[in-house]
């Protein structure tokens, strides 16, 4: 599920600080975005301090205490091996956030240069890259992620790499679009005239001004990666047991959906809420960064 962002015309570098304040002001005025920020903030905080909040060792197995419903001792009940679900969820939040952020980082690091070079230089290379990326985008990211995980093997790190690679074409296309718009701007032509090298222009002049759409897309992409990771878990290609990744907890828990539904309900809701948070913030950022809607 890829949410598309339209490249926006970017301001010149000098306006950056005031631009940032302006964006922030718009974001804070957007009630939905604030809710999203609060959700994400809450999850980040809880994940950072997971060891403080956790009531139990998330890996401590107690076969005599399996699948117990929520209680004062176990806030969210226990899982199929008698582990405390609340504590697992806390630590799992860290992992899911990590999956989201790191996979986005991978996607950006690979996708942005491809898009930038392709858009900046144009010509045959661009046409080919463009068509190729069209197809890659049409290919469902989850399928690409499945192939990458089977090549690399299962495990959280590989899930990050797989979801990251699957998001590469999205960034490449996005950045290419922005670059096309920006490279005609006066300060870029000026830089050209001043004799700056192509790479310098791309990295110093153009990319900093593509930041807005990249940030917006990344916010959405974090959400998508978390969902992809859950889907991989469902197919048995997710995190290595006993890692308490949310998608893994959810897909293992589905075996108990009829007998001890808390094992699926809470991780399901947690994923839903976190994805919702990132999408709300993404929406807010897009509006705030788009001069048309201000």
């Amino acid at each position: 599920m890829a949410t598309e962002v339209n490249p926006t015309t970017a301001p010149s570098p000098r306006e950056k600080t005031s631009e940032f304040r302006e964006v922030l002001r718009h974001l804070v005025r957007n009630r939905a975005a604030v809710v999203g920020l609060c959700i994400i903030g809450g999850f980040v905080l809880v994940s950072l301090f997971a060891p403080l909040f956790a009531t139990h060792d998330p890996l401590r197995i107690n076969l005599g205490n399996r699948l117990k419903p929520p209680s004062a001792e176990h806030f969210l009940g226990t899982d199929e091996l008698g582990r405390d679900l609340f504590s697992r969820m806390l630590y799992g939040g860290r992992i899911s956030l990590n999956i989201g952020v790191i996979s986005v980082f991978i996607g950006v690091v690979i996708g942005v240069p491809i898009g930038a070079v392709s858009g900046y230089f144009g010509g045959k290379l661009d046409m080919f890259t463009q068509r190729f990326i069209d197809i890659m985008i049409a290919f469902p990211g989850i399928l690409l992620a499945i192939v990458v995980v089977t090549v690399l093997g299962v495990g959280v790190e590989n899930v990050m790499i797989a979801t990251g690679i699957a998001s590469v074409p999205i960034y490449a296309r996005l950045v290419r679009g922005s670059v096309l718009a920006i490279k005609e701007q006066s300060y870029v032509t000026a830089a050209h005239a001043a004799g700056l090298g192509d790479m310098r222009i791309i990295f110093r002049q153009i990319l900093p001004n593509c930041l807005a759409p990249i940030i917006v897309q990344s916010t959405f992409q974090i959400a998508t990666s978390i969902l992809w990771a859950a889907g991989l878990g469902f197919l048995g290609l997710g995190a290595q047991a006993p890692t308490p990744e949310w998608g893994a907890i959810l897909s293992n828990g589905r075996a108990y959906i009829r007998t001890a539904h808390h094992v699926t309900t809470y991780p399901g809701l947690a994923i839903l809420l976190m994805v919702l948070g990132f999408n709300l913030v993404g929406d807010g950022l897009r509006d705030a960064l788009d001069p048309k809607t201000r």
């Binding site: 091996l81 089977t150 047991a241 006993p242």
Partner: peptide, 28 residues
């Protein structure tokens, strides 16, 4: 199978053997 492996891991830990679990997709 994976559930059993986790239980075994925790029982081994009780006698001091630190077992790391590693799974692979079936054909691999």
């Amino acid at each position: 199978d994976a559930t059993v492996a986790q239980a075994v891991q925790s029982m081994l830990a009780d006698v001091g053997v630190n077992a790391t679990l590693e799974t692979r997709e079936w054909s691999a």
